[in-house]
Design a protein around this nucleic acid. Structure first.
Lengths: 226, 226
DNA sequence: ATCTACAACAAGTATTCTGCTCATTGTCAT
DNA sequence: ATGACAATGAGCAGAATACTTGTTGTAGAT
């Protein structure tokens, strides 16, 4: 279940948000100012942060800015009506939404759900991570190493390239043309069956994980975490 | 540059939004009620729709619901303060955000920019997350996966192509000729009954959702979210 | 010289498409 | 309402297509 960090100096506000959030099934943690929020975020991971703008010690914007330096956790800012400039600032600093005080708890929870839904959707990208793992399969792109159950899997260059490309685009249907042009190069005019042959070899290398390479008849192949 | 459709019955409101939106470099079109909005949306593509909830003829929710049957354009709803139920409703109907009236133009424009930025992101970036969902039916075009109640539906290539084409053109009457030439190719000279056969197979695969494929006697078929 | 990786090819296999027939349903005129 | 007619749905089997696998020749690396 998703974890939420509520940052506000007023006990009353934290209490209300906690009540509603827990009712919706979220796990709630609290912090009373920006400094605390940063500290907690360093130690733990949250799915969402709800943060007030006006706080003692360190205000919401500065905290938001700081947290963004090491975490990409979505943030919803709470600001008093009229703080127009602040709102814009908050958005630009990387918050994902904001709610004007006084807010209705229902409205807040709707936005919470919307943001969480949104981030879950686009969180599958592994562009930052240099290693991909799934169960006992590990693919280290930069080291060019594939291991299954901790054992190194030896692959030929073409196998690596083909496999890496597929893993990097996991979950996507990759057409034969796409695979050929990406792995062999756009100027490959070789045999149609060459791709199949390499898929076969790759599957052989992958052993039990060959099931992750799904044939899409008439289209191509897809790597997926079944 | 992005195109925005503003739907509101009050001239004053449209005027204000137009002014701000054009200042931000958007191209603005207008409609005065839900019916008009639907008609315009059928003919043209917008990057965003800003729609009031309370309108004569056809209210914003109904219009939103209707437009979602054939377009995925993001929608920001404008609702009067206190219409809490309505807000939730709007979100569930597929609107992407909402702004409470009376709104500050700056706040509105911020949300406009946020929504457009968001949709551009998910469209351009690696996650070409192109999925259509309706109740418990999910169609992921880029992964080439169809699920019903979370269970994968296996389909043959032709079924996928036919289904994807119909879903992408949901709500539209598709003639037999159109379907044949789009899915089989303009140079298909096969039997008349071939299309029927595949529609039959597709319906079988879709189980309960076969109801979404409506026969238009003497014309062709239509996929719709009943 | 030997070995490895790769492309090409061919045979084998599984899946899917299509064309046919007959049954059913919807539509229109009477 | 009823019947005739046209359009669509269902089932099935052969044909066609697409993928898998095994083998082989060759080029480049060691």
């Amino acid at each position: 279940m998703s974890r939420i960090l509520v940052v506000d100096d007023e006990f009353r506000i934290r209490q209300i948000i906690r009540k509603y959030a827990e009712f919706e099934g979220f796990e709630v943690a609290e912090a009373t100012d920006g400094m605390q929020a940063i500290e907690v975020c360093r130690k733990e991971d949250f799915d969402l942060i709800i943060m007030d703008v006006m706080m003692p010690e360190l205000d919401g914007f500065s905290a938001c800015k700081e947290i963004r330096k090491f975490k990409q956790t979505p943030i919803i800012m709470l600001s008093a009506r009229g703080e127009e400039y602040d709102k814009i600032h908050g958005f630009e600093l990387g918050s994902d939404d904001y709610v004007v005080k006084p807010f209705s708890p229902k409205e807040l929870m709707m936005r919470v759900n919307a943001v969480i839904k949104r981030t879950n959707k686009s969180n599958n990208d592994l562009s930052k991570n240099d290693v991909f793992t799934y169960e006992n399969l590990a693919v280290d792109f930069s080291a060019r190493i594939v291991t299954i159950n901790g054992n190194r899997v030896e692959m030929t260059p073409k196998e690596y390239e083909l496999f890496f490309y597929m893993v990097k685009n996991k979950g996507l249907a990759l057409t034969r043309e796409k695979l050929i042009s990406e792995v062999w190069g756009y100027d490959f005019f070789g045999d149609e069956r060459t791709l199949d042959t390499h898929i076969k070899l790759l599957r052989k290398s992958l052993g039990e994980y060959s099931r992750c390479i799904v044939t899409l008849r008439g289209v191509g192949y897809r790597f997926e975490t079944l």
